[in-house]
């Protein structure tokens, strides 16, 4: 399988994650020129394997200590699969699990590793386009002829392409022993908040641009006028200005309201992942380079306080 592609599947609560199908669809398209697509399914079962019809092979690893994510045991399983399959390209998700595994694989086997990937192409050499500077800049890199590793951003490719019917062959790979320096203890589920931001029709989301905790009030005024809830990007939650339950993004909640107003949010890839499915996105930012404008339907390059005030007034006028 020196031409092959190995896709590392992810699943949560017994369900395969979208990123798995996104990567599988991309891998299938890339393998058109030859080479098999193998999905590595760690701690998965036959019913999950049956959903991976787009793959040529599903390699399942089962064993003690694999029920929950442990970088050591999962890393050993991925290492063994790469050893067995000698793929030209290993695809993982740019996720809490995927990135951890990819970095470890790259250092253990001295492989080129491109992260934050939006796209990957295979020719004589493998090239990837990644986001950097919080999504402000893209970079195209050459990873050589392979083997190599790419971590793909969620949403970079359509998941539907990876949901094809098919009958991949399945095989079982042994779970290698790990060094035992990392022990899984337990999972902590997120707490429920006073307001469920995933259930709102309109969200007024604020970011770093708001500047201070007291100034969130202007967003609250606007939210009241819109009958909306206030949400925020990670830096505000980190600063303790809004509760964790109001956080939109990769490490927070994924939302898809009818209207998403992003005020002073630059639009780092981790934030975009949490709100890009919103029906209408309005971005207000004083930085015209802010990547949020690439995702918005309407935008204003302006001071968010001016805009908030004027919007609140315009809405009152309309009602009036």
């Amino acid at each position: 399988m020196a031409d092959g592609i190995l896709v590392v599947a992810e699943h949560l609560g017994g369900k395969l994650s979208d990123i798995t199908f996104e990567m599988l669809g991309k891998a299938k398209a890339l393998s058109g020129a030859g080479g098999d697509v193998t999905v590595l399914l760690i701690a998965g079962d036959a019913s999950m394997a049956a959903e991976l019809g787009a793959a040529d092979t599903v390699a399942i690893v089962e064993g003690d200590g694999l029920a929950d994510f442990n970088p050591e045991s999962y890393g050993a399983a991925l290492g063994a699969a790469v050893e067995a399959k000698s793929p030209r390209l290993v695809m993982v998700g740019y996720t809490a699990m995927g990135m951890d595994l990819a970095s470890t694989l790259a250092v253990k086997r001295n492989l080129p590793h491109a992260t934050f990937c939006l796209d990957v192409a295979i020719g004589d050499s493998i090239t990837a386009t990644s986001q950097c500077y919080g999504g402000k800049i893209n970079v195209t890199t050459d990873l050589g002829a392979g083997p190599c590793v790419v971590s793909m951003l969620a949403g970079a490719a359509p998941a539907d392409a990876g949901r094809a019917e098919g009958t991949p062959s399945t095989e079982s790979l042994p779970a290698p022993a790990s060094a035992g320096k990392i022990r899984f203890k337990r999972l902590i589920e997120p707490e429920a908040g006073d307001v469920d931001i995933t259930a709102q029709e309109i969200l007024v989301a604020v970011g770093r641009g708001i500047g201070s905790k007291d100034d969130i009030e202007v967003a609250e005024d606007l939210a009241e006028e819109l009958d909306a809830a206030v949400a925020g990007s990670r830096p505000l939650i980190d600063a303790g200005w809004l509760p964790k339950t109001r956080q939109v993004g990769k490490s927070g909640l994924k939302v898809a309201p009818k209207l998403y107003l992003a005020l002073g949010i630059s639009g780092a890839p981790e934030h975009i992942e949490g709100m890009k499915s919103s029906a209408t996105i309005v971005a207000v930012n004083s930085d015209k380079q802010a990547p949020i404008f690439n995702f918005a339907h309407y935008g204003m390059v302006a001071d968010l306080f001016d805009v908030c005030e004027e919007l609140t007034e315009a809405l009152q006028e309309r009602k009036g």
Partner: peptide, 9 residues
Amino acid sequence: MESGVNEIV
């Protein structure tokens, strides 16, 4: 981890 879940190791 993803979606607000944390893991203790």
